[in-house]
Simulated assay, not measured.
Amino acid sequence: MKFLLDVNVSGSLSDFLIDLEYDVACVRDVDRSMTDGDILAWAVREQRIIITTDSDFEQLIWLQDQPHCEVLRLENLPRSKRLSLLQDVLADYDRELEAGSIVIATEQKIRIRRKLRDMKP
């Protein structure tokens, strides 16, 4: 899997993914003021899963119908808890992450959202 980490995702998550030998790119290494639309286009172009803590990408995808790859939105928690959520998602929801889903991970639950046109009847 290939990931694109939004500026609001900590370096410890990046380090964790790199240690697991995932392909990781970080917005903060290119342009901290990059727009969400540009980040989404980057992810689509390079087939990367966006990891973020905000819902802006969901707005672009659901309301503006922007092309997208996968998005993992982690609850904005302390770093150690976000890392734990990431580990849970990678262990149990890797197929969903690779199938175009938006995965929303909170301490209470993990939700999987798929585009309606992508769902089979």
Rank of each mutant, 00 (worst) to 15 (best):
D94N: 10
V27P: 02
L60V: 13
Y22I: 03
D38T: 13
L83H: 08
D54A: 05
I61A: 03
T106A: 05
V9R: 00
D65I: 14
V7R: 03
E75T: 06
S33V: 15
R117P: 07
M34F: 12
Q59G: 08
E75A: 07
T53I: 15
S80P: 07
E107A: 10
V7F: 10
H68Q: 00
I50E: 01
V89M: 00
C69E: 11
S101M: 08
R48P: 00
Q66V: 13
M1Y: 11
I49S: 01
D65S: 15
L60F: 14
E58Y: 14
G11Y: 10
I110N: 05
G11I: 10
K120M: 12
L97N: 04
R82I: 09
F3L: 03
W62Q: 05
C69K: 14
Q108G: 10
A105R: 04
L40N: 01
V71N: 04
V103Y: 05
S33Y: 15
L13I: 10
R82W: 08
I51G: 04
D56V: 12
I104E: 00
D88H: 13
S14H: 14
D92C: 12
K115D: 10
L13S: 05
I49D: 04
V27M: 01
V7C: 05
I102M: 06
T35M: 04
Q66L: 13
E21V: 13
K2E: 06
D6G: 02
S80R: 13
A91P: 01
R95L: 12
G37Q: 06
Q108M: 12
E46Y: 15
D38C: 06
R114I: 12
D36C: 02
L72M: 01
R45D: 06
H68Y: 07
K2Q: 10
